[in-house]
């Protein structure tokens, strides 16, 4: 019987080794290990054996069954692996074909610039304020030390609606409104972004509508050096750590002293080149110490409080930072232009 079992093992293992199909393997399993299988048949004859022989043969039979099962499983796994590989090979696709596009929009360049500046000043403790685009003559001019008939009103040609209502020419009225709201009592820092309007003919450098961001800090003992330091931080964060700033005296009716800020030219670093028209410097923004009359009109006592203010045009900043050469590009909304700056 022992020989019989060993013969079965040899025969079964040979058959398993010679099989290449999962189905045939299944048949082999049935033929040897099934209810009517040959190994099962041999084992049925175990009853006839003596008490001494039974455990010995039983052990051999188990070993044979284990050997066949192991071989079957191993072969099965191998064949399944081969079959899977075949199937996957058949499933191969051309990975160089284009993918299905995801519809993607993006922000307008001016929004990106405005948000960048907002975030920069928020980091320095500024709140963001907004105000109406249709303003009163009072908040747009008078509260900013620009009484009617003041020659400096010529600096900004205005779209009037009525004698008293107009399209705001700058975001400065938001400064006046904020000061008024804080009733001359509260120290604060704020910036105010928004659309502004001037009576200009649209061309490469002029637009009847554009955006502005202004900043205002009112407190006791605000120094002009604080303005200089703040603008330096802004310029370096916005344009690069290697840029220098320069303040020049200027004039705005709502600030005194007034400044104009230049940054060193990124091309020549102050040496002078065609980009900066040989001066080494590029004008970025205006600002100054809040005029005492402006503080006073808003309810702040100028002997107790002082402040600084500054204002800039995101269009100009975009033009300098990205080389946009026509201000109209911001408002024509050419898709190719919009798309260029979606990751800006």
């Amino acid at each position: 019987m022992k020989e019989q079992l060993q013969a079965i093992q040899v025969e079964a293992l040979e058959k398993i080794a010679g099989t290449d199909e999962i189905k045939a393997l299944q048949e082999i399993r049935v033929a040897y290990l099934g209810k009517k299988g040959s190994l099962t048949g041999v084992l049925k004859g175990m009853g006839k054996l003596s008490k001494e022989e039974r455990p010995v043969i039983g052990e051999i039979a188990n070993k044979v069954r284990d050997a066949i099962t192991t071989a079957l499983d191993a072969k099965n796994e191998k064949l399944e692996q081969i079959a899977l590989e075949k199937q996957l090979e058949a499933e191969a696709i051309d990975v160089t074909l284009p993918g299905k596009p995801v519809k993607q929009g993006g922000p307008h360049l001016l929004t990106s610039i405005v948000e960048e500046i907002e975030d920069l000043f928020i980091g320095m403790g500024y709140e963001v304020r907004e105000g109406p685009e249709v303003e009163t003559d009072y908040f747009n001019f008078e509260a900013l030390n620009l009484p009617k008939n003041h020659p400096a009103r010529d600096m900004q040609d205005t779209f009037y609606i009525t004698n008293e209502l107009l399209m705001r020419t700058h975001t400065s009225p938001v400064q006046a409104r904020t000061m008024k709201e804080y009733k001359g009592e509260k120290a604060f820092k704020m910036i105010c972004p928004g659309k502004v309007y001037r009576r200009d003919n649209d061309d490469a450098t002029h637009s009847h509508q554009f955006t502005q961001i202004e900043g205002l800090y009112v407190d006791k003992n605000v120094r002009m050096s604080d303005l200089k330091g703040t603008l330096d931080v802004f310029a370096k964060k916005m344009f690069g750590e290697d840029r220098e700033i320069r303040l020049r005296p200027s004039f705005f009716p709502f600030t005194e002293p007034s400044v104009e800020m230049d940054i060193s030219c990124k091309v020549c670093h102050g040496e002078g080149c065609s980009v900066c028209k040989g001066t080494g410097w590029i004008e970025i923004l205006g600002g100054g110490m809040v005029h005492p009359r402006v503080l006073e009109m808003a309810g702040y006592d100028p002997r107790e409080y002082s402040g600084f203010a500054f204002g800039m045009g995101p269009e100009r900043i975009a033009m300098l930072k990205y080389g946009v050469n026509d201000i109209r590009a911001f408002y024509t909304n050419d898709k190719r232009f919009l798309k260029q700056y979606h990751q800006a």
Partner: peptide, 10 residues
């Protein structure tokens, strides 16, 4: 000089 505001903590 270059300085930063020392007043309001907001």
């Amino acid at each position: 000089p270059f300085t930063l505001p020392v007043g309001v903590a907001q």
